[in-house]
Amino acid sequence: MPFDFRRFDIYRKVPKDLTQPTYTGAIISICCCLFIAFLFLSELTGFIANEIVNELYVDDPDKESGGKIDVRLNVSLPNLHCELVGLDIQDEMGRHEVGHIDNSMKIPLDNGNGCRFEGRFTINKVPGNFHVSTHSATAQPQNPDMSHFIHKLSFGDTLKVHSIYAAFNALGGADKLASNPLASHDYILKIVPTVYEDLNGKQGISYQYTVANKEYVAYSHTGRIIPAIWFRYDLSPITVKYTERRQPMYRFITTVYLMTTKAYLENKSTELNNFNHA
């Protein structure tokens, strides 16, 4: 008698003349089909969507910058005339610049009673500060009012990425309009280099930062010190890198195959159980 290879079939079909459709079987089959479709769509969505992976390492990702970082500052001072507003920059490399004017613009507000300062400048990659003050004015006002609203403060390139949570403009929206008009404002910044790499391997370099702030009226032995808006910064040695990835095709195919096979076998097992109880 010839050997029949079909003996190894553990999922044997039941002859149709011995089967009978039931409402329970139909409901189970429909539920299994819907479940398979749900799992497939879930895996398809996960395959199409991009995954953002982040990592930390110690390095300077922007070695070609010449040790410089671009800064963009946009701040409104509604109670200070534009001719009094200036930007000063100093750092531990000996830079001390009073009244920086390159790539800056002062826009009068409220019929000239206030001023909006917009500037773009560079800082060295060493601890330092830049501050908005009246230090560069030819004649100092009696009571300069440094209440302000910060529209934007950012470092490095602008990354057009919306899928990550990052603090590239942590001070954007800072409202100090109701503060003491005679007070100075200190913003202490920790700047963190940030790299974003897209699916094509193209990298963009920017800088996030954390911020702490305090408000105070300063005095010396000669009297009250002229108030200013200080941005004191230091750089973190840690670089944050975000890498955009997509799920591999083989993982998607394998997952879909396994889940459909499992659902199919569960459906067949249910049909056999229903037949045995019939």
Rank of each mutant, 00 (worst) to 15 (best):
K190M: 05
N273D: 09
K63I: 14
E266R: 11
T243P: 04
I226R: 15
E55T: 15
P237Y: 09
F47Q: 14
H81K: 15
D145V: 07
G204T: 09
A166F: 00
S206M: 09
N103Q: 10
Y196V: 02
I69S: 07
G86C: 06
Y233C: 13
D60L: 08
P144N: 03
Y209V: 13
P127F: 07
H221W: 08
S65L: 03
D4H: 04
K152T: 05
F47D: 10
N129Y: 10
M1Q: 02
E266D: 11
A166P: 01
I229L: 07
I123W: 00
L171G: 06
I205Y: 07
M105D: 12
A167P: 06
R12N: 14
T45C: 14
N124H: 12
K190C: 03
G114I: 12
I150Y: 01
N169G: 04
E97M: 04
E43H: 03
T239V: 07
K268L: 14
V195D: 00
L265D: 01
G128T: 07
I150S: 02
A278G: 15
R232T: 14
L56V: 10
L265H: 07
Y250T: 13
C32P: 04
P108Q: 02
A174K: 12
I191Y: 06
R7W: 07
Q208C: 04
I27Y: 05
I123E: 00
K214C: 08
N213P: 12
Y233I: 12
L77T: 13
T222P: 05
Y23D: 13
P108H: 03
K63W: 08
G25R: 15
F155W: 11
G201K: 01
P181Y: 07
N124P: 05
C33E: 06
G46W: 11
F155S: 11
A166M: 01
H221T: 14
I89T: 01
P227Q: 03
G112D: 02
N200Y: 00
D91I: 05
Y207S: 11
P15C: 05
S136M: 10
L41G: 02
D9N: 15
A218T: 04
M105Y: 09
S29A: 12
Y207T: 09
E118S: 06
A278V: 11
F130P: 01
N200A: 03
N124T: 06
S65W: 02
L73T: 00
M259D: 11
D17K: 09
P61R: 03
N129T: 10
K241Y: 07
D157F: 10
K160M: 09
F130D: 00
S65K: 05
V75I: 15
L177Q: 10
G94S: 05
L177I: 13
F121I: 08
H185S: 12
F252I: 06
L73W: 03
F275N: 12
N200M: 01
H162P: 02
F231I: 04
P61F: 03
R116Q: 11
S136P: 08
R6Y: 10
Y242S: 07
F35V: 08
P144W: 00
S133W: 13
F168K: 04
R12P: 10
I10A: 10
P227G: 04
K241L: 12
Y250K: 14
L182Y: 01
T255M: 00
C115D: 02
G173E: 00
V240F: 12
V53K: 13
S136C: 13
L159N: 09
Y207F: 14
T239A: 06
A170M: 11
C33K: 08
D110G: 03
D88E: 05
Y219L: 01
